[in-house]
Design a protein around this nucleic acid. Structure first.
Length: 778
DNA sequence: AACTGCCTAA
């Protein structure tokens, strides 16, 4: 980082005669080059100026062109040329023509004409031309310097130019201060801004409203709101812009929405006349605060003051209503708008996902061209509705309009195809990316994970870390893939963990939640516990993760302990938390506790029970033999009871040998899912236990006829240490395909023997705390 | 007659 240091000596020097003085007394200083004006030139200038004042630049330009076409070159002086350049309004086409005329007529030697030209080129985005004119000026004045200064794109370059002004002995005028301050935004800019502030104070320029406003804005951008407020408070006169500047300062800073709201209220109290800038900031603050009531009041004020159809104001109002989940009101705002821009359409597409595609078409008919954000919203809407055809069409549209070079659009498409279960297409888009940033890698990894392709997810992760720096989302996705996979060695998870510690990401809330979950799913609850203990802050998410982890291991006491602790710390449980707690109650047979918790979930926490909650409750009641109660609960489920609920109930019938209820449930299940093997197997086992062999045979026959196959169960053995592969070895019973089958069988026998031995010792009252790890000898 | 300030939303 370069530390920019202003030369105070130069800046404190006496202002040159043509800078400050002329700024303050425009009407006196500038006529020394004027020739005695041609009487017609004066009238031309007057009428052009008139048009410009009425905001009719095209008419002003027409007057100028007509004069030239009719050969009234004498009607034109350097003031006319300057006015004509101004009338171009940043349009370089007529601008270049007038530039040519100014050169051939010699008017370009007037500094005002050159300054106007430079300004025109800056406004039209042809900064290089402006700079070229500047470098050829023999005697640039302060306006020339300021004009070039205002044209820079990068603040880095602008600040360097300000230093060059300083070195050349140019004394800043108020316009210079305002212009430079607008470029001070980062840490380095802040240091520069501080120096400018003290200088401005020395010269008394900080009393100028413009400079004060620029200072407020600079401090706001540099997140120094206390300073911004101080400048505001100490200003001798404030205008609307000053108020808007401090208002937007609070709006942009996170967690300062309330201050923004107070500022707005003060503005109203002081009787300030509000404009669209005030309203956009104030409504945005309401949105951040999710304060719908105040937002509605502001909307009323907006209607009253006549800004009810202003594009930007309407756009933020839509955003406010969508954030506060009153989508209908957002739609109403959209309907009353006269002019809708890209942002308006993109907002309504994102808010109104069901109609996203037709809204997109309407937008095209309205003549509004989409941008990358539009596509991100549209593709998201298409993804969550799984509209495959539309998705492909939008993909085609993006290819045709070269939006595929927008990285964010590509990332959305990768996610979309992953949702469509078309990972080849996701991969294709990924491979055609110009630049693979970590977000794209993340989209691919999480896509593989969500499609159950855990090994691919892991392989992609390993490639990703070779060329990009992974972030918390990368680890979140890969850890969830490893957690879900039975055939990936836990060593891969441990590798991720070590890498996380190295990157100091292991305490991030997203990552540690995923880590905890991964260990729990892969059977290492001790590690889960450790991760939980090391979390710096415990959110609802982390509490739920540790509770599910213990629930997965059937540890009733720990689950209840953590659940109570969570409630004690005032963290609200969610539907997943309850699911874990209820599951473990069922396993332990704590039916009454479970019932009580279920009721408190519905009544106290107003959580709508899902199909999983119901099947969990049914399972719990069923296991305890309270079959009638369970069936009663099934009948209370709104809509049709799902597959899993009925399967739980059937399982309970099997356990307690209730054939009559079992038959009823099994019939319903076989009708719902004729190819699902579970219900057939359960029912046939139930008949078998009761000795109804002819019914068993009938079910088996039915299974064969309908083509129901029982899924094969697999086990895994970790040979990754030996073979150096990523994955575990999968085998089923009687499987002899592994090259080390013999050793594996021998080892299995040993494990069996040791288990038997330990069981006997336990019966004798010894506690077992040692788990032996086995290695296969080669 | 030339140069400067507040803007938010997807």
């Amino acid at each position: 980082m370069i530390t920019r240091q202003l030369n105070f000596k130069v800046l404190q020097a006496k202002p040159r005669s043509n800078s400050l003085k002329s700024f303050h007394s425009l009407e006196h200083g500038h006529h020394m080059f004027d020739q005695i004006p041609h009487p017609n030139a004066a009238s031309t200038n007057r009428s052009m100026l008139d048009c410009l004042r009425k905001n009719l630049p095209f008419q002003a330009l027409d007057i100028f062109k007509r004069h030239l076409q009719l050969g009234f070159v004498d009607n034109v002086d350097h003031v006319t040329v300057a006015l004509a350049i101004k009338a171009c309004h940043g349009d370089p086409k007529p601008g270049c023509q007038i530039h040519g005329f100014a050169v051939s007529s010699g008017h370009v030697s007037y500094i005002t004409v050159s300054n106007s030209l430079m300004n025109m080129y800056c406004k039209s985005g042809q900064f290089a031309k402006a700079l070229c004119i500047f470098e050829n000026l023999i005697d640039p004045d302060i306006v020339s310097w300021n004009t070039v200064l205002s044209g820079f794109q990068k603040s880095e370059d602008a600040l360097s130019f300000a230093l060059r002004m300083n070195l050349n002995g140019v004394v800043f005028d108020p316009v210079s201060y305002t212009t430079i301050l607008a470029f001070c935004s980062d840490d380095e800019g802040f240091l520069f801004g501080l120096q400018l502030h003290s200088l401005a104070m020395k010269f008394g320029f900080d009393c100028e409203v413009f400079v004060g406003n620029a200072l407020i804005s600079m401090y706001s951008r540099c997140r120094q709101l206390v300073e911004a407020q101080r400048v505001f408070d100490e200003m001798p006169n404030r205008d609307l812009v000053s108020w808007n500047a401090i208002l937007s300062g609070y709006t942009q800073e996170r967690d300062h929405g309330l201050e923004a709201v107070f500022t707005f209220i003060e503005m109203v109290r002081e009787g300030m006349k509000l404009d669209h800038v005030s309203f956009t900031s104030a409504v945005s603050a309401c949105g951040q605060e999710r304060n719908l009531e105040l937002g509605k009041q502001m909307h009323g004020l907006i209607m009253k003051t006549g800004y009810g159809r202003h594009v930007s104001v309407c756009n933020v109002l839509m955003s406010l209503y969508s954030k506060c989940e009153v989508v209908e009101d957002a739609k109403l705002v959209f309907q009353i708008m006269n002019d809708r821009n890209v942002v308006s359409w993109t907002t309504i597409i994102s808010v109104n996902e069901e109609d996203a595609v037709s809204l997109f078409n309407e937008m095209r008919l309205d003549g509004v061209y989409p941008n990358d954000v539009t596509f991100i919203g549209l593709i998201h809407a298409i993804s969550i509705q799984t509209l495959v055809k539309e998705g492909q069409m939008i993909h085609g549209f993006c290819i045709k309009t070269s939006f595929l070079s927008e990285p964010n659009v590509c990332n959305s498409l990768i996610t979309m195809y992953a949702k469509f279960e078309a990972m080849q297409d996701s991969l294709k888009i990924f491979e055609e990316l110009n630049y693979r940033e970590i977000i794209s890698w993340n989209a691919l990894i999480s896509g593989y994970g969500q499609n159950g392709l855990s090994q691919e997810a892991l392989r992609t992760f390993l490639s990703a870390i070779m060329e990009s720096k992974p972030n918390e989302y990368t680890f979140g996705s890969v850890l969830s893939a490893i957690g879900a996979a039975e055939d990936i060695s836990l060593k891969q998870g441990q590798r991720c963990h070590s890498y996380l510690i190295k990157l100091r990401l292991d305490t991030d809330p997203i990552v540690s939640g995923a880590l905890l979950d991964m260990y729990a799913k892969r059977g290492n609850i001790c590690e889960s516990q450790k991760v939980f203990c090391e979390m710096p802050e415990r959110t609802q998410f982390s509490w739920t993760a540790i509770i599910s982890a213990y629930a997965r291991h059937g540890d009733y006491d720990s689950v209840i302990k953590f659940f109570k602790e969570m409630e004690r710390e005032g963290v609200r449980p969610d539907s997943i938390t309850f699911l874990s707690v209820l599951t473990v109650c069922g396993r332990k047979g704590m039916v009454d506790v479970g019932r009580q918790l279920f009721d408190s979930m519905v009544k106290e926490y107003q959580i709508e029970p899902s199909a999983e909650h119901y099947s969990c409750m049914v399972d719990m009641l069923g296991r305890a033999g309270r079959l009638e109660e369970a069936e009663d609960l099934v009948s209370q489920i709104p809509g049709q009871p799902g597959l899993s609920v009925l399967q739980s109930l059937l399982g309970a019938c099997k356990i307690h040998g209730n054939m009559e209820m079992g038959e009823r449930i099994a019939d319903a299940l076989m009708e719902m899912e004729p190819t699902e093997s579970g219900s057939y197997v359960l029912m046939s086992n139930l008949y078998a236990e009761k000795g109804h062999w002819e019914k068993v045979a009938k079910i088996r026959k039915g299974m064969r006829e309908r083509g129901v196959k029982k899924e094969i169960g697999f086990s895994w053995v970790d040979t990754s240490v030996v073979r150096g592969s990523l994955c575990l070895y999968k085998f089923s019973s009687g499987d002899m395909s592994h090259p080390q089958t013999e050793e594996i069988f021998r080892m299995a026998e040993c494990i069996g023997l040791e288990m038997k031995f330990l069981r006997e010792r336990k019966r004798e009252g010894e506690s077992i705390c040692k788990i032996t790890s086995y290695k296969i000898d080669r």
